[in-house]
Design a protein around this nucleic acid. Structure first.
Lengths: 127, 127
DNA sequence: TTTATATTTAACTCATTGGTTAATTAACCG
DNA sequence: CGGTTAATTAACCAATGAGTTAAATATAAA
């Protein structure tokens, strides 16, 4: 998929790429600097490819400096990603379990909609 | 890759799956409820597969209720993902541009290390 | 016991990903 | 110019991802 959020998340879905971002967070670096920690595990072209994924996602910008290609971390896409995640914060916060139970009983009483779960006989809201 | 963070991010790197999470955030739902909005675009087995990706990432838990499979959103993995992103917050916050400029001039003056970029003739920290 | 509903599994296709090695481009340096 | 360093491109390959249709399984209901 081509939407920005998908590009961002899939760029982040690789430990090598996350490590590259971590390195860039400590300062700009050109490609071979950036590659150095990984050259035991993979070739330079592999690093170039990872870098290209990060660029496509807008997480890294590469400029020109003689034969070097200084890279810079760009955090903007991460903001959109965290913004998206924020809407789920309630689902991982401490109080959630109790809150959820509360909401479930409330909706069960007020409406007859019964949100799927109910233990016993009830269908899952068919048609 | 098999680490949890990669599993989480790659599960999120698809708009269909994000939409499913959005739906689940409004309440538990069984598979066909969850599939309904997507059946114009894809088959039911496709949905099952997406769901399995979300389960593998721990974002959804599926239980048994007669022939139905009620699904529930589990936010825990999202917490780890946002925690990871938090460390980059400074890279997308307003003040960053000025701060970065400041840091750059500081390091350029104190040390002779020259963080790669400098416009003119300078190599990118070689060896 | 048959039938209907809900969901999964199997088997297959096609595109993308992540890696490789070898060759190529680009810029500097003596 | 010729050599060296930095980085990319090309051509290839195996594994994975996202989808399909058809068949199988599980439970309820008539």
């Amino acid at each position: 998929m081509h939407d920005q959020l998908s590009l961002t998340f899939s760029a982040l879905a690789d430990p090598t790429r996350r490590a590259m971002l971590a390195q860039l967070s400590k300062g700009d670096a050109n490609v071979s600097d950036l590659a150095r920690p990984f050259l035991k595990d993979m070739s330079l072209p592999a690093v170039t490819k990872h870098l290209k994924v990060l660029e496509r996602a807008g997480l890294v910008t590469k400029t020109k400096e003689a034969q070097w290609r200084p890279c810079k971390l760009n955090g903007a896409p991460l903001k959109d990603a965290t913004d998206w995640m924020e809407q789920y914060r309630i689902f991982w916060e401490e109080s959630f379990d109790r809150l959820e139970e509360y909401l479930k009983t409330v909706t069960a009483k007020s409406k007859t909609k019964s949100h799927t779960k109910s233990k016993g006989k009830k269908n899952g809201r068919k048609k």
